[in-house]
């Protein structure tokens, strides 16, 4: 396993835990799949995505531009992990 993949897995588990704690708190038995679409499934609303963006900025020390707040970058746990990896790689 490469270092990059390791990092991605950390982001996945941390962000999955963040989303479960903050958005699935009334449904503790719910299993959040990493490819689950957070907006379409009604798990996270627009304001919730701003909270996720703030968490990503604080936890991973990356700056998120407004135009980057899209479902492509934040729409699922997988998408967030890929986005953070790209930002860390400097792209």
């Amino acid at each position: 396993m490469s270092a990059a993949a390791d990092g991605g897995d950390d982001v996945r588990s941390e962000m999955r835990a963040f989303i479960e704690d903050n958005f699935l708190y009334l449904d503790p038995d719910a299993e959040l799949a990493d490819d689950q679409e957070l907006l379409a499934a009604g798990i996270v609303d627009s304001l919730g995505f701003v909270e996720i963006v703030e968490e990503v900025e604080a936890r991973y020390a990356v700056g998120v531009k407004d135009v980057e707040i899209t479902e492509e970058n934040f729409g699922s746990v997988d998408a967030i992990a890929r986005y953070v990896e790209r930002k860390r790689a400097g792209s």
């Binding site: 907006l39 627009s46 995505f49 701003v50 407004d66 707040i69 899209t70 479902e71 934040f74 729409g75």
Partner: peptide, 12 residues
Amino acid sequence: RSAPSASITVFS
């Protein structure tokens, strides 16, 4: 608000 996108709306 951000422009309509059928996706995430961001307020500034």
